[in-house]
Design a protein around this nucleic acid. Sequence first.
DNA 1: TTGAAAGCGATACCAC
DNA 2: GTGGTATCGCTTTCAA
Lengths: 338, 338
Amino acid sequence: MAMKALSKATIYQVAQRAGVSIATVSRALRDSDLVTPETRERVHAAARELQFTPSRPARSLAEGRHAANGIVFPDLVGPYYAEVVLGYEATAGSLGSSVLILATNGRPDAEAAVRELAGRVDGLTVMGRTVGDDVVRGIASTGLPMVLLARDPVDGVDTVRAGNTNTAKALAEHLLGHGHRTITFLGDPDGSSDVAGRFAGVRAALAGTDALLSLVRGNGLDLDSGRTAARQILADRPDAVVCANDEAALGVLLAAEEAGLDVPRDLAVTGWDDLLAARFAGLTTVRQPMRELGATAARWLNRRINEPPLENTAARRRILATEVVIRRSCGVHEEVHP
Amino acid sequence: MAMKALSKATIYQVAQRAGVSIATVSRALRDSDLVTPETRERVHAAARELQFTPSRPARSLAEGRHAANGIVFPDLVGPYYAEVVLGYEATAGSLGSSVLILATNGRPDAEAAVRELAGRVDGLTVMGRTVGDDVVRGIASTGLPMVLLARDPVDGVDTVRAGNTNTAKALAEHLLGHGHRTITFLGDPDGSSDVAGRFAGVRAALAGTDALLSLVRGNGLDLDSGRTAARQILADRPDAVVCANDEAALGVLLAAEEAGLDVPRDLAVTGWDDLLAARFAGLTTVRQPMRELGATAARWLNRRINEPPLENTAARRRILATEVVIRRSCGVHEEVHP
DNA sequence: TTGAAAGCGATACCAC
DNA sequence: GTGGTATCGCTTTCAA
């Protein structure tokens, strides 16, 4: 039987086999027009026979670029980040760039991991509160193109995010319209700038009204944290609980059910993200363009990477629109739902 | 010849600054014990001052490895893949490897993209029906360590998957227990081996009974495809619709509601995956260890990568356990739900 | 312990 | 058009 030809072929072997120099191989393989169709074909044949694939590190070293970019996010748990990352990958891929991902989640060495990642890419997207501003500045100052995603801006770095405050204000006003007067916000404004913006919006809506706003930070934005926090919140019998995201809100829904409370009659609940589950739970929430957030970041990063060094434009900011999605959980509406 | 504005420092500059050779810098920075604590410190200081970070391509070229591995999946849409990829990233990261992702989704050049990815990593995990067996074999034959995830095995390549057939059989038997006799399976067995396994399980359960099984392939496994397919299915008034995944099942639920059908009284519906939404939709489904699937693949791949070439063990197979999760949608149970 | 130098595998400039 | 070769930045013998 034939021997397993696993040692990858190099450009030298292809050159030898085709009877040309490595320079010619390089040209022929990248379809340079400085090669005779004849030799071009000969080289391609040799390459094919040897199953030649150029070494990526060698290429990168010679070209001075990685042809890859990276995205750092806190976690991939929950549909929110997943959608954003997917949008990012799809767009980056179509722009001809490979994508490296890094979830800083429970990583103790997040900062080091991010720096290491920065060394593997032509540009980096940093999402949410994964690493401090100092790290972002440090990396940006090396000249590596960067884009911030769903995160407070840093001087000189592009930022893409989804609208929080205005939409949160609209949501809270809708709640007021239902007659709710004691409102609890569940989420930690110090935990992420998104949450901070949402809280600010709610507060703005209640300012100058007779409604009462209280804040419960909770332990996180997942279902169980929401459920746990809700047990405490429900003891105070607020009219409504505005949650920082859908998962927490779903947890509150579960806790309310346990407590024998009817939503929305006894308690109104709202979330944020419009997850698939929100639809089936009848949860009033806010929809944000997750896929588009990722796609925009990828597009911007690509632009920065290919930008002529001297035309370096000022940092961009963009806030993508979000919208309130009214369902059953925010209060009793005219029509009766089955 | 343009001047690089922010050229990163090289090992040469560090060497010069520390007054040593590049060899010494290399050793000092990788904490070799062949260096005086004294010079070690001097080198570290110089590196720090110059903000030196070794060039990844240069390192990879010299070491002959990437310190990275990749995972290919069809799509990241829907919580299923996201969870698997997260589990993968977390484990790979903790094993000291960077992770490259590739969604073949709507990519016309999926095969080329996978090959290109293969050139950037020390090992590759291929999930589902992203590329053909020929491509898998081709890559595996170059000696690149691989792991197959949720996909039919290929000779000589490790495979990790979740149980389908037996659990599907149990699920179908439960349905029979409810008295359902006309059952429609929604999903394309030719579209993925997972779906094929689930269908096989259902068929096995009905074999030898008086129950009738029909197959509707549908156009996909997302909510809208399920909803659309359901409109056709419902015309036949089956007792139960067994869906290949939760998203399709949720679509069926929506269509049933539109048609004025009561689930489970008029129609039983089951899904697969146990998404968060399934819980709130009261959907009977099957839970699979998504996170663990990814983690196992990452662990196996790591083992292969670091395996002494000659101890090359036979291809491994593992099927992780799945379990039926009974909720309301499969039929009327004793207890009355609110 | 440290330094000199030989790779690693491409790209691209400069002659011919 | 092609070939020779310097270069990219680092790791790793091999000597000293």
